[in-house]
């Protein structure tokens, strides 16, 4: 047997109290107990008003994502004793997923998440009528989207997303993983249109690449990788007017020509108009030695290796 204090986020609007707080529940439990099992025991034995979403308890329905000691997990898949060992504490703090408004206790308003999911046109749009039997798809082509097809829409990625914290309108990692799942499906006819739809404001180029979504996804979907692959699709489809795409392109040109980053080129190419407004800043940076004095491209010694690297990366996408 083991004993744990669960410090649970409470928000009970029906009581008239619109302030949230944390409440401690002490529970004796078997060593092998998941956070979800513990929460349900608390609900059954100590406080029936505790609200939490859950269903399958086998890490497939995606209902029970929450934060355990600040880290987003599926409650059903998280062993209490392992979480305690990881944090070195006998108390586990349980909070709702981040980047959402609370409804009651651990239950949050998922509406923005579903709206954004729907906004990426998450359905196959094939070209022409269907054949009598199945469409033939090479095994390798189908496996290209296998990882993203395993997304259970639990919103763990959304909870951890730093771009969303800065811009609540950002479409978010899960929806883009689904976007990639269709854009890269060879049965879909909308590759270019999808590249356009996913670019622009709040789009793929607004991802800050913090990698938290990859790290915290309980199903190994790697949404950041999907966003990156969508970026590559945008390039292949020549959807590159976006500031983010131009920024990436400037990087590439700069790498190709000099083998190293040329800040002036990147800044100017990404945002020629905005860049001009920043001229006074650039001047001051120049004076302080923060910018190279010559706009001419410096070249690294082993540029052939950089070229090789670029080629390798291109081939893997």
């Amino acid at each position: 047997m083991a004993s744990t204090t669960f410090r649970v986020f409470r928000y009970q609007p029906d009581s008239g109290d619109l302030e949230s707080y944390h409440q401690d529940f002490n529970l004796d439990h078997e060593e092998k107990t998941t956070v979800l099992d513990a929460l349900l025991r608390i609900q059954n034995e100590q406080d029936g008003t505790l609200a939490v979403r859950y269903s399958c308890r086998s890490a497939i329905c995606g209902s029970c994502a929450c934060k355990v000691n600040g880290k987003t997990v599926l409650a059903c898949m998280t062993q209490v004793e392992e979480a305690k060992a990881e944090s070195g504490s006998s108390t586990l703090q349980v909070d709702p997923i981040g980047n959402f408004a609370p409804i009651k206790d651990l239950v949050v308003d998922m509406t923005p998440f579903w709206d954004k999911f729907k906004a990426v046109k998450p359905f196959l749009i094939p070209d022409g009528p269907a054949p009598d039997k199945e469409r033939l798809v090479p095994k390798a082509a189908m496996e290209k989207v296998a990882k993203e097809s395993a997304c259970i829409l639990c919103a763990a990625c959304y909870s951890e997303c730093n771009s969303l914290a800065a811009d609540p309108e950002f479409v978010g990692p899960a929806a883009f993983a689904w976007g990639y799942r269709f854009a890269a499906d060879e049965r879909d006819s909308q590759r270019k249109n999808r590249a356009k739809l996913y670019s622009g404001q709040h789009g793929i180029w607004d991802c800050t690449r913090c990698m938290f979504c990859n790290e915290r996804c309980p199903k190994g979907v790697d949404p950041r990788d999907a966003i990156e692959k969508l970026g590559a699709i945008a390039f292949q489809e020549k959807v590159t007017k976006d500031k983010g795409a131009r920024h990436a392109k400037a990087f590439l040109i700069s790498m190709r020509t000099g083998g190293k980053l040329n800040e002036q080129l990147v800044g100017g190419f990404t945002d020629p108009v905005g860049g001009a407004f920043n001229a006074p800043l650039a001047l001051r940076m120049l004076q302080k030695g923060k910018l190279p004095a010559s706009p001419l491209t410096h070249k690294v010694k082993n540029r052939d290796q950089v070229t090789k690297l670029i080629k390798n990366v291109k081939e893997t996408i």
């Binding site: 196959l124 269907a130 199945e134 189908m142 989207v145």
Partner: peptide
């Protein structure tokens, strides 16, 4: 399949 199900393939 026509609606997009990602069945494993031969």
């Amino acid at each position: 399949e026509h609606w997009g199900a990602v069945f494993s393939r031969q």
